[in-house]
């Protein structure tokens, strides 16, 4: 997952991830991509469009 520079680490993406795969640090997102089923809810929920599939 590409995290754009304007991400503000609000954690909304992590809240809607059905598999709990996103760890939010103060200024970093960590994705457990191995388990990801590509539902894309994280991308859809982001208020500022800061996530993009790589």
């Amino acid at each position: 997952m590409i995290v754009k520079e304007w991400c503000s680490y609000c954690g909304e993406c992590a809240g809607v991830c059905p598999r709990n795969l996103i760890l939010v640090r103060e200024t970093e997102l960590e994705f457990d991509t191995g388990e990801c089923k590509e539902c894309d809810f994280c991308i859809k929920a982001c208020p500022v469009n800061a996530l993009e599939k790589d």
Binding site: A14, G15, V16, V24
Partner: peptide, 15 residues
């Protein structure tokens, strides 16, 4: 709103 910790404990608190 992330509610990661409770989910790690097996509770269904995802939104």
């Amino acid at each position: 709103p992330e509610s990661r910790i409770a989910r790690l404990a097996g509770l269904k608190t995802g939104t």
